[in-house]
Amino acid sequence: MKSGGLRLYAILYLAFLYAPILLLPLFAFNDGTIIAFPLKGFTTEWFGQMIANQTLRRAFTNSLTIALTAALLATCLGIFAARASTRFNFPGKTPAMGLIMLPLVLPEIIVAMSLLVVLLAVGIPLSIFTVILGHTLICMPYAIAILSTAFSSLDKSLEEAAYDLGETKWSAFRLVILPLVMPGIVSSLLMSFTISLDEFIIAFFLAGNEPTLPTYIFSQLRFPKSVPVMMALGTVLVVLSVLLLTVAEYFRRRGVARTGQKDHGGFL
């Protein structure tokens, strides 16, 4: 295979993907307020400021609350939808699944605006709760996509075998289906969590006065003074997501190994 050129290209491409991200730690530890070369020296001051920042902490706990709740809700609802779509035939299946998966192909601004209009019209005050509602809606299609793959790779007769061996429908689900789709559920939780944590537009419009991490970052980017702290925050976020991804990959591989499937790589 003459893949030398292609390999070089792929490596350059990866460099293009990573180069901006590598600036984050570089300037997070740089003793200067302007993001420019040459570097001025090492400091941990920006991290110190970050940790001392009350609003940032509040934004962080808000984001965690939202992401955890939305991931759980989206995954639970996703399990219902994925099982319904992979295991049953019923009238109206295509339009029903179409509607549920619609956020995948709808610009987020439209979801955010239409939800905002309705919430205001109905008189529901904007809060963390309204953000959770919106995030669950947009995470659900991703959860379903992951879970459907997990459910559809199951042999239908596994469930029948458990039933045939004396289990009830529910205990057959609990003893056989659930353990086998568990890697999918973990992936779905992680995916939804990350999407929600990173989501800006819906949080921006539906959170009212409550900050979330992305909306807080957005508000701070106007002030050149707080840019180095944002670089520090960005560094922390990147490290966290790499850790999370590694855990996810570990679970995925374990799931693959345990059920003896062929490893195709990647979660998407």
Partner: peptide, 20 residues
């Protein structure tokens, strides 16, 4: 009488061995 209460057991075409 549902399948889980019948005095029959089945060997499936795919064997349906629980992989976990």
């Amino acid at each position: 009488v549902p399948a889980n209460k019948r005095p029959t057991n089945m060997v499936f075409q795919s064997y349906a061995i629980f992989p976990h």
